[in-house]
Amino acid sequence: MLLNIPAIDTTVMFGALAFSVDLPYHLFHSNTQGQCGVCDNDQSNDCRSPNGMVRSSCSQTAHEWQVDDHNNTYCQEPPPPPPTNCTADICQIITSSVFEECHSVVPPDPYLQACVFDVCHMPEHSVGCSSLETYAQVCAQAAVCVDWRPHTNGTCEYECPEDKVYRPCGSSDPPTCDARHSVAQCQGQSSDLDPRCQFQEGCFCLDGTTLLSSDSDSCVSSCENITTTTPQTITTPTKCTCQYKGLTITPGG
């Protein structure tokens, strides 16, 4: 899922286990803290505590930015260091031939270290999937597609509903039945200029079907079937939209 916020030139990308936030330097220079680090293009000061002290590892400072929420107990201080005999086999995929094409574009070592730390600190080794997913997302942003999930022996499976199929490198802006949607809008367009033109893994409509609209999760076999001369109102408990001649109009649109 890709969320664009034009007002602040920001892109938020949600994956199966992780998410990323892409902030523009000209608006957020030295204006971020915590898990986002300090937006000054200097990685040496990103692992900063709330008191301003810079640590050697972000794992030492992450819990210091935790917001107390008694309704959620999943954020706890990190456990003791892992035993020296800890093995993290799933993490080795990052430095294997699976990601080889991306190694020269995005150095894998930071992602490998994060993966080993997570796997060795958590009882469930599938937590390593988030590190692999994050590295694959960064590779995709650099126009390198990596189909890594089949190499995890089922540990990091991505399940899709029956009317959709998993694709490791689908379009972040898939075509829809909306008449205002241009299928060719990403042709020849650099992902650096338009984040909608990046690779994105996820569940996509089966071949021969099309996403009804950018606001819908339904796939249809023919867009002609939903084109009418009379407006159709689709109501849900949280919102309503109006579809007219292939256009999807949201409230206030």
Rank of each mutant, 00 (worst) to 15 (best):
I8M: 06
T10E: 03
T11S: 10
M13Y: 02
G15K: 01
A16T: 13
A16P: 09
S20E: 10
L23Q: 06
P24R: 08
H26G: 09
F28I: 00
T32S: 10
Q35M: 08
V38T: 08
V38D: 07
C39L: 00
C39T: 04
N41Y: 11
Q43W: 12
Q43V: 14
D46F: 07
R48E: 12
S49M: 12
S49H: 12
V54Y: 03
V54L: 04
S56E: 12
Q60N: 15
A62F: 02
W65Q: 09
D69S: 06
N72T: 06
Y74S: 13
Q76E: 04
P80A: 14
P81V: 14
P81S: 15
C86N: 05
A88R: 03
Q92V: 05
I93N: 04
I94R: 00
T95G: 03
S97T: 11
C102K: 00
V105F: 08
P108R: 03
L112N: 05
Q113T: 14
V116C: 02
C120S: 05
S126D: 13
V127P: 02
S130W: 06
L132V: 02
Q141A: 03
A142L: 00
A143D: 15
A143R: 09
V144M: 01
V146I: 13
V146E: 01
R149P: 10
P150H: 09
H151V: 01
N153P: 06
G154I: 03
C156Q: 07
Y158K: 01
C160T: 06
C160N: 10
V165S: 11
R167Y: 12
C169Y: 01
G170M: 03
S171L: 13
D173H: 14
T176Q: 04
V183D: 12
A184F: 15
S190W: 01
S191R: 12
L193G: 15
Q198I: 09
C205D: 08
S214Y: 03
D217F: 04
V220N: 04
I226G: 03
T227D: 12
T229G: 13
T229H: 15
T229S: 15
Q232A: 06
I234W: 14
T235L: 15
T241K: 14
Y244L: 11
K245R: 15
L247Y: 15
G252W: 02
